[in-house]
Design a protein around this nucleic acid. Structure first.
Length: 259
DNA sequence: ATGGTTGCCATGCAA
């Protein structure tokens, strides 16, 4: 079973690339972030044509998340239970597998803009609420996978120039602590379960030839519960996708589960 | 030190 996550920065613009990706990599579930469209504009039919179901929660211009699956899903939940928010950042759904129910979450964590800003404060509050939400998910679903754009580079290994980035948004210690607090509920960073190439990143700024210089950050992650960690055989960043014409600024991250 | 790019949508804002 293969799960992937990709911040596509507008589904309107990137739909052909999403379709091409799925045809080349027919993953069982693809989590998308930054749809940037309202639900009435979601391309249900185009995805159906290539054999994918979709659950989604979108809004005009900003945010928006989806889960695309080869099989129908159940128990769809939108947003974080008990956290009032107009921003559409979380969707969860359950897949039936031979091993039992698999819970998949697609998350677009806040960017935070700059340390100390209102958006940064919102980001930290959001993470605290997300942690509570994930704790509840884990209590109900031992097979839990949380995929998305976390907008946090957990470690200096995940930063192309740690000195330059020190203390900045996406890297600051309070954000890293917020990310670790998600792991504390019983989740594992799938990418770090395996030996990885040095300077592995998942996002490169459009500006300053970020991708060409590999001036990136690893901020897109797949978190797995203990039960799924035990059956995870691979986790890779699909860097080649960032070379597409008119690319998203993020590359997909994909994990294989032996279930 | 500042601005670079992209996507939204028509202007600055968010990332």
């Amino acid at each position: 079973m293969k799960l992937a996550t990709w911040n596509i920065n507008s589904l309107n613009v990137r739909l052909p690339q999403v379709i091409a990706y799925l045809q080349a990599n027919p993953v069982d579930a693809l989590c998308l972030q930054e749809l940037k469209l309202s639900d009435d504009k979601f391309p249900v039919a185009a995805l159906e044509e290539i054999g994918y179901h979709a659950v989604f929660t979108g809004q005009k211009t900003y945010n928006g998340v989806a889960i695309l699956t080869r099989q129908p899903v159940k128990d769809v939940a939108k947003n974080i239970d008990g956290f009032e928010d107009t921003q559409q950042r979380v969707i969860a759904a359950t897949l039936d597998t031979p091993a039992g129910e698999l819970r998949v979450v697609s998350a677009y964590c806040p960017n935070g803009q700059s340390v100390g800003s209102d958006k940064y404060e919102y980001k930290l509050k959001w993470f605290a609420a997300f942690r509570e939400g994930l704790q509840k998910e884990l209590a109900r679903y031992p097979r839990l996978a949380v995929l998305g754009d976390y907008n946090v580079a957990p470690d200096d290994r995940d930063v192309h120039d740690p000195v330059k980035w020190e203390g900045s948004v996406l890297v600051s210690e309070p954000e890293r602590a917020a990310f670790r607090s998600l792991l504390d509920v019983g989740l594992h960073d799938a990418f770090r379960l395996f030996e990885q190439p040095p300077k592995s990143f998942s996002w490169w700024d459009y500006r300053q030839l970020g991708f060409r210089r590999n001036a990136g950050l690893r901020i897109d992650h797949i978190l797995l519960s203990d039960t799924l960690k035990a059956v995870c055989s691979e986790c890779v960043i699909e860097r080649e996708i960032r070379k597409n014409e008119q690319p998203s600024d993020h590359a997909p991250v994909m994990a294989t589960l032996e279930i």
